[in-house]
């Protein structure tokens, strides 16, 4: 079904300019490095900086046939806690996981202070912490891909600090 094998569907929620499209692509890249099949799908609307945006990633052991939007995610990754509303958790699978970038703990969600980590490493643009690479560390923690692959994928495009950010988020999450 849906291309066969175990299919993991991830939906990113962010604001325009936070790099959600890049995050989906880096995750697809990391999965690809492990010999898995993966696709990254941007949802392009009338984007402008700061407006809510989504992007999608699918990872599977089998070729992936579907290219429609992810409506029933296994993982939802939220780059800005202020984006949390009904749309964010819409369609989340029963045993699905929501990972949010937040300094304060939010009940029922996995919270990580990716902004704090990004700031401490100087990953800031226009005074906004760039958390897209850091948040990939959280997905590695849930073994969608290994931390090693995430770091390699990140380092193909970004500097070492981004890989460190991913590792710090990975270590911050205690399961």
């Amino acid at each position: 079904m849906r291309g066969g094998g175990e299919l993991i569907e991830i939906r990113f929620h962010a604001r325009g300019g936070q790099g959600a499209v890049t995050a989906a692509r880096l995750l697809a890249q990391a999965a690809f490095m492990e010999g898995k099949h993966s696709t990254a799908i941007p949802f392009f609307g009338a984007e402008r900086r700061g407006a809510p945006v989504v992007s999608f990633c699918r990872v599977s052991d089998e070729p992936i046939k579907i290219s429609s939007a992810v409506c029933e995610p296994d993982f939802v990754v939220v780059f800005d806690a202020r984006l949390i509303n009904a749309d964010v958790i819409k369609g989340l699978k029963k045993d699905g996981t929501v990972i949010i970038n937040s300094q304060v703990k939010v009940n029922g969600f996995i919270s990580v202070d990716a902004s704090g980590i990004a700031r401490s490493l100087g990953l800031v643009r226009d005074n906004i912490p760039m958390v897209n690479t850091a948040m990939l560390g959280a997905l590695a923690r849930f073994e969608i891909v290994s931390l090693k692959s995430v770091k390699s994928a990140i380092k193909e495009t970004f500097d070492e600090r981004n890989a460190i950010a991913a590792e710090q988020v990975y270590r911050e999450i205690i399961l």
């Binding site: 989906a24 692509r25 697809a28 890249q29 690809f32 099949h37 993966s38 696709t39 990254a40 799908i41 941007p42 392009f44 992936i64 290219s67 429609s68």
Partner: peptide, 9 residues
Amino acid sequence: FVLSHSAQP
């Protein structure tokens, strides 16, 4: 977009 901007192997 769905193909032109989607990333695949």
